[in-house]
C-alpha cells in the first residue's frame, strides 16, 4: 500500500469504517445502528480491496454487506416497536468499559505493529489459489464446515416447520 492515492483512499475508508462502527455503538435507534453497521462493513470491504485481497473484498460485499446487513435490517424493521427498544446497556460502567476496551485494544495493537505493513507490488489474483487451497489442502475443513452449515439449514427448516405442527390444522396441501 504505497503511494499517495491509496493512502488517501485508506484514510477515507478507515474513517468510514470507524464512523460506521461508532454509529453502531452510539446511535440511539436500532435501525440507524443497523445502517451504520452497513457503512462499517462496506468500509471494511474497501480496505480489503485496497490490500489487493480481491476475493476477500468481494466476498465481504456479497456476504456481509449484501447478505448479513440486509438480513439484520430486515429483522430489525420487522420487529414491532423497534423505535422504543432501549439501546443503553444498564450494566455499563466507565471502568468496566475501559477494561474491556483495553483488553481488546492492546492485543490488537500489538498484533498490528508486529505485522509487516504494506504490500510491495500488486498481488496476483487470489481467486484461483484460494479455490485450489479450499479443494486441495483444506478440503476436509471445508467439507466439515459445509456439513455444519447443512445441519444448521436442516435444523432451521425443522424449527420453521415445527410451528405448523398443530393438531387442529388441516393437513397442508403444499409440499412434495
Amino acid at each position: 500500500m504505497t503511494g499517495t492515492v491509496p493512502t488517501l483512499a485508506f484514510w477515507g475508508l478507515a474513517l468510514l469504517t470507524i464512523a460506521g462502527a461508532a454509529g453502531v455503538a452510539l446511535s440511539g435507534h436500532m435501525v440507524r445502528s443497523a445502517f451504520s453497521l452497513f457503512a462499517a462493513l462496506f468500509g471494511m470491504a474497501g480496505i480489503y480491496a485496497l490490500l489487493q485481497a480481491d476475493l476477500m473484498a468481494v466476498v465481504q460485499l456479497l456476504v456481509y454487506v449484501g447478505g448479513i446487513s440486509v438480513l439484520v435490517l430486515f429483522a430489525v424493521m420487522l420487529t414491532s416497536g423497534i423505535g422504543r427498544v432501549g439501546t443503553d446497556n444498564p450494566s455499563h460502567r466507565p471502568i468496566g468499559g475501559l477494561l474491556v476496551l483495553l483488553a481488546v485494544l492492546i492485543p490488537a495493537l500489538g498484533l498490528a505493529f508486529r505485522m509487516p505493513l504494506g504490500i510491495e507490488s500488486p498481488a496476483d489474483p487470489t481467486v484461483a489459489p484460494i479455490g485450489d487451497a479450499l479443494l486441495g489442502r483444506f478440503v476436509l475443513p471445508f467439507e466439515v464446515v459445509s456439513v455444519l452449515l447443512l445441519a444448521a439449514l436442516v435444523g432451521a427448516v425443522n424449527l420453521a416447520r415445527g410451528w405448523r405442527r398443530d393438531p387442529e390444522e388441516r393437513p397442508s396441501e403444499e409440499g412434495r
Binding site: 480481491d54 476475493l55 460485499l61 449484501g66
Partner: peptide, 22 residues
Amino acid sequence: DLSVGLLYLIAISGLVVVGILM
C-alpha cells in the same frame, strides 16, 4: 477488469437493496 468481476457484480446488486430499505 477485476479478476472477480462477476462476483463483484452479484455483490453490488445486493447492495442496492440497502438503499431501498433505507
